[in-house]
Amino acid sequence: MFNRRKEFSSTEIQYRALSDQGLIRLFILPTIILLVVINIFPLFWSLVLSFSNFTAKFPLVWGKNPRFLGIGQYIKLLTDQAIWEKFITTAKYVVLSVGGEMLLGFGLALLLQIKFRGREIITTLLVLPMTMSPVIVGLMWKLFYDPNWGMFNYLLGLGKIDWATDTRYNLYAAVIADIWMWTPFVMLLALAGLGAIPQYLYEAAEVDRASWWHKFTRITLPMVWPLLLVALIFRTMEAFKVFDIAMGISGRGATAPQLLSIHLYDTAFVTWKTGIGSALGYIVLVMIIAITNIFIKYLNKAKQ
């Protein structure tokens, strides 16, 4: 998935590398130490907590808080109907938003293949939503959705639908905002992929009088496919974890869409069930790793 550069094989450099061990340590150690302290150590700590009923609300008393429950928390979570419903909601969110982004982003990239003056300005304008803060994007859409004075319903002629807090719609409200924010991401990657297709392939197809459809399915799609998969992997991972867009639109609790990630925040930091929150975090982590691995397998196949 990532470029691996060849090591420098010149003997000169290798010889010097041996004499530079001290410098290497000095250069790399601070980074590694910081990552271990802030990322890896907490990761293991979470794992330990996930086997206990620890709550951060009360002081630590060994044997009571935390009391160790083994895999009890995991069994409780995985047999909980409500969690599975949240999981299905999350899956819906991921499929709809990532699907929408892929279609729209790839479509836009295809259209932007045409060279014209101002193409770069258009691309830059389209990319703007991507670098805004997700929670502020959520806030902006909340303003835009508002049934009493926002533009969204008015422009689409939809009447007074309360997108932000009506539980029938708030998931889709978040999906739309997510698509708006992240379509440019897919578009940029697709553009990079399309730009790298050698022109002679099309010229050869032209000679053979290949149809537009034929050229698209036999040249364009196979050539961009690896990059589209990269976009898919990134977006799926992010969409699985994302909560800030939905929280920006609908807030938390009953008015918010029942996403696993929002529930995770609530469990860990609102109801302070630290132990069970950690367990749920680990379940999500395993799910993300599993899904990503499936995609990466496809990616490696596509690259061959």
């Binding site: 802030i38 907490p42 979470s46 951060a56 699985f240 990630s261 995770l264 929150g277 680990y282 982590l285």
Partner: peptide, 11 residues
């Protein structure tokens, strides 16, 4: 790539 919450609780 970790979900932030897993790390965030101990931090």
């Amino acid at each position: 790539m970790l979900p932030a919450v897993v790390v965030l609780i101990p931090v």
